[in-house]
Design a protein around this nucleic acid. Sequence first.
DNA 1: CGTGTTTGACCAGCGC
DNA 2: GCGCTGGTCAAACACG
Length: 433
Amino acid sequence: MEEQQFQQNRNNSIDLEEDLDKILQFLAREQPLQSCNPAMTTIEASQHYMMSSGCLWSLPRDLPPPPLFSKSSSPALPSSAHAVSALRGEFLEPIVSDLSATSRTEDLHQQEMYLDYPRSTVTFQQMLHSAENERELLSHFPQMEESDHANQVEFISASARFNSPGISLAADLFHRENSQNGAGSGSLLTSIFSEFHPEIGSAIVSPTTNSSFSSSVTDEAHVDEECSHIMASAGATGNTVAVGSKRKATAMASTEDFTNTTNENKSQEDLTNTTHEKKSKPAAKKGKKRIREPRYAIQTRSDKDILEDGYKWRKYGQKAVKNSPHPRSYYRCTYAKCLVKKMVERSSKDPGLVVTTYEGVHIHPSPAAVRNSIDTQLISRSMYSYFPSPVKMFNAPRSNLELAAHMIKGQQHHIPQLDRGLLEDILPSGIRM
DNA sequence: CGTGTTTGACCAGCGC
DNA sequence: GCGCTGGTCAAACACG
């Protein structure tokens, strides 16, 4: 029974083992990624590609994010969106259930980007029995095959509303599309490793950059007011929500701080400052204007206040939030010298929503990722081992999307074994058949 | 005893 | 300058 469904699902999805290379080439051609974190494990990398190529979270360090998921933008990359949905269907949907998120992110250029990211509530089980829903869904989007990106946005959104997996449908679309296009020439992996590991990557594929970013993304995309409010308050003492030219100016400083000196310098500073004399801080610190790390919020629906995101946190404060019955909790990463912080609070308007605001960049892989990497290495030739076995490079930038992936991954308790027993591993015991 | 949480005090930034 | 507010500190406490 399970084996049957497993096969059925496989048939309805991209076979990553066979197709991933093609997919990545496809994505590289369509939407080259400018950043990738070499500290990622293979799993993280997979999710990175999956999510970033969906342009939901991709925040390249050196380039503004492409204007995807903005209805005002010219139709762009519908095919990669399909491909990504396919990947997402393969990687995430079986794992994630009942997770909806309206996500707001900011790139290092401080251009705000609001993303309506209604994670579908599709479970793996539902995905297996969704043909009817898909047909119904399709009937509402007769133009889906016209490569209209706005349609894709609507489609995914509607997928959630219909409680139907547009994901596997998108996989089919991608299959058709990809079979027509054939494999591309650029390898995303090659370019990535050329950048971070020249000894691995050979020829650098110079991808064309998408420079058509429009700052009007915010206006067009759906903005969750609550999240916006929280982010605004979160950045009240920093620059993160500044608008206009001032934002531009401060963005550069922020970027520099972020990429170069942040962690070590600040940790030293913190160590010396916090040992004694809380009341009279050293003049050096007093005179310095605090530079905030970039922040970004992830909004999820959950009963639990604390969502597992793969890292260990220590709570260091809690404050009552103005006009909200729910307090805000402050957490700090417990890893030595890692200065990443996060704030967690519930939406005042919708108590079911948990808004987690992250600040900073981890200087270490997540404990969960380390654990997973052990499993990863054991799964030869599985889709998780497509990428070279976990490559670590500390201090590499960690993307926002990766944290989102972590958060989503947190819904699973352990790494699924792909080679066999997929269902047993990825389905919560409650919905197994 | 080590680790993590609670909680009141304190500080810095901002707006008026 | 002053008050408000978000953010942080660190002693006290809880827990395994």
